[in-house]
Amino acid sequence: MPVGLVVVSHSRALADAAVELARGMLPGREQTITVAAGDVDGGLGTDATAIADAVTAADGGDGVVVLMDLGSAVLSAETALELLDDDVRERVVLSPAPLVEGLVGAAVTAAAGADRDRVAAEALRGLAPKQAHLSG
């Protein structure tokens, strides 16, 4: 099973668009990416119980990398870890990577069959191409 990816955002539209962008890099390839975004009424917000569910859905046994936007998305993702079973929690990494760039890097790497730590490392390197380009 490839490593599962989870996108956490205050906004459902933002999360779905980021996933669409990442999937554009994976023509014809399978990759599990689940989304936990927005509050219960569809407004802006994050919900740790929804994140825990998204992690469980993305978990195929070989690890999960969670990408998130900012502020309470981070607090909610950490809170979600407390709601998970111990064996699932041990397989989850919360990535400090920027959401869009990190997700694209993680998706390409995960779909190629890399392990969880490699996927997380690639997410974290997500800003490197942009930084290299603009510093030249």
Binding site: D39, G45, A48, T49, G71, S72, L75, S76, T79
Partner: peptide, 21 residues
């Protein structure tokens, strides 16, 4: 805890939720 986590949104959801959890 779980109700606040689900319904509050914003940072006070996970913070108060964690307190009660």
């Amino acid at each position: 805890a779980t109700t606040l986590i689900k319904t509050v949104g914003g940072a006070s959801g996970p913070l108060y939720g964690t307190f009660f959890l």
